[in-house]
Design a protein around this nucleic acid. Sequence first.
DNA 1: CGACTCTTTGAATTTTGTCAAACTGAGTGG
DNA 2: CCACTCAGTTTGACAAAATTCAAAGAGTCG
Lengths: 261, 261
Amino acid sequence: LSKGVSTVTLNPLVRKLENTFLLTEAEHAAVRRVPVRVTDLKADQDIVREGDRPTRSCFVLKGITYSYKFAAAGKRQILSFHIAGDAPDLQSLHLPVLDISIGSITACTIGFVEHEALHALCASSPRIAAALWRETLIESAIFREWMTSIGRRLAYPRVAHFLCEYYQRMNAVGLSDGQTMSFPLSQEEIGDALGLSTVHINRVLQALRAADAISLKNAVLKVLDWEKLQEIGEFDPTYLHLAIKKLNGVADPPDRAAARS
Amino acid sequence: LSKGVSTVTLNPLVRKLENTFLLTEAEHAAVRRVPVRVTDLKADQDIVREGDRPTRSCFVLKGITYSYKFAAAGKRQILSFHIAGDAPDLQSLHLPVLDISIGSITACTIGFVEHEALHALCASSPRIAAALWRETLIESAIFREWMTSIGRRLAYPRVAHFLCEYYQRMNAVGLSDGQTMSFPLSQEEIGDALGLSTVHINRVLQALRAADAISLKNAVLKVLDWEKLQEIGEFDPTYLHLAIKKLNGVADPPDRAAARS
DNA sequence: CGACTCTTTGAATTTTGTCAAACTGAGTGG
DNA sequence: CCACTCAGTTTGACAAAATTCAAAGAGTCG
């Protein structure tokens, strides 16, 4: 575990916040002034645990983390995966007791920021406060879509839908070349995220490969037929609330144009 | 549809916000100053729909509403039920396009507040802003628990868990006498919320009645054996982030005590 | 009463899970 | 460099959970 304090490490987060509107110079400066403790983690390590009362929040700078809970009988439900720019436990800023555990899937670089500093940042800039609030609301929208998937989609569209979401999110932060991307999740982890058994995930993935929709090998996912994958997965990306710009080159949303003038 | 503008109608919301900390006189005044358009709705009516771009948020003052989405094949997933004090679409304050529809289960009284007024309220009082943010975070925590239920619990504990949550939430806002409460949800609605078929809900409810855990008839739910129901439902209320005081008469949480002195 | 929605019941079917074992590929230590 | 380990993937056979379909009963409201 190497640790250090840096002032320019929240760049992935800043880039993400600016999906909504450009930050002013002053706001940039305020974010840069926030003390961040950067930590490298190995794969498969817990960062925080259910029941903890953290005094800081973490930001994923590199790698993939996930949040999870256990139901009785030791069955694990994975609630989300986090990639660069995500803030897996921002909630702890306002909810003292954590209701989830967070761990690393891959080796990760995590930035820790004290709640105190985040509260001060929010007080100093209502727009940053709104942007952070907004991030938690998008996470919430993703939960809703997962609930719909787990509750009302059969295994085949369910897995396809998940892969669509993964692809879109990786794309949005520049971690995909438009077709190929790192996919370090085991079939057990996919199953625990989608409420399915490992064996069934295996069979469904084979079906998706047989349909020439994807290839997935050695932790590398290729989206071979994006149209088909979306169709199988009944996928409509509205719920991700991504900046339109990133997806199809359409003009800036109003907020962004306003921030410029 | 009767409509009107009132200044003291957000009381159920205020009572709920004060679960965390007492509002100051000035904050009370600020909330009282917010223009609220009060509307009565019949049962089974949509309030807003997926894809809408609302300019106001709604607050449930009386009755029960629910939010939902459709998966392909016309299958509906219910994502949450809202009771007095809940704000079903606060998210629209920061996410322009709604990713859910919201409708009434029973006849309802709804208070509508323009986003503009809410933004102003948040700007005027960071504590109120935090309290509203917190409400959306609690909703998020409930989503997580539902995901766990739908993904990893069998039907029997799943339904029991849901009833536990319902009981706790009704209790927390004084809509239960500790055992009996209104329960106007149809078995189809329960099924759509828990990712189960109506027929299966029916059979599970019979099992819960046979276990003498509950009685449920004519839209009245009685919790006959709370200990047993919790056990069957693998229920741990932490995720609801309720004020302790409401649950077992323990001393005030620190925030509340602090706000007094 | 009659229309309607909601609940209940039974039987057959589908989807998914469980168990157990074989296979694969990437390290690891002798 | 080669067995060896170990985690992850794949396969097959069987079992369990839940769905679907169809129809009958109950309760409610005009």
